[in-house]
Amino acid sequence: MSRNVILRIATKVLCPNIFLFALYVQFHGDYGPGGGFQAGVIMAAGFVLYALVYGLERTQGVFPPLWGHVSMASGAFLYAGVGVVTLLLGGNFLDYNALAVDHHDGQHWGIFTVELGVLLTVFGAMISIFYAFAGRRGLD
């Protein structure tokens, strides 16, 4: 852990804002620039910043490596799952129109869910790769 008080306090102030911004980029992706990919990377960057200042051990206490693996796998599963659900509902693979009566609603639900899948996979992959690199000879 860094002994530098300024760095530690600045990180404490920045981290929640980075997470909030990641969620904004995720859920505002329908209206402005952004989406699952960008949000996942920003979210992972928040944890990376925390790990650089407070050390890998403390970060893995907050967010265990296993969660990253689960997030990575469940994101891809969720995305492909939407495709299977649309198939079962009588549409084509990833044809979101089948998800709701009104096709605009269906598209919204489909895009929302697959973007969530992208977020989970990108975030999980980024944080897992970071843990794997940093764990070889700690960044602490």
Partner: peptide, 30 residues
Amino acid sequence: IGVENVVTAVLASYRGYDTLGETTVIFAAG
């Protein structure tokens, strides 16, 4: 589609297959 951001519409809906592939690539890389 009815989404304000056309980039999102293309990425997640029109090109949904491609994005599924990209997600799988990231998963595989991880």
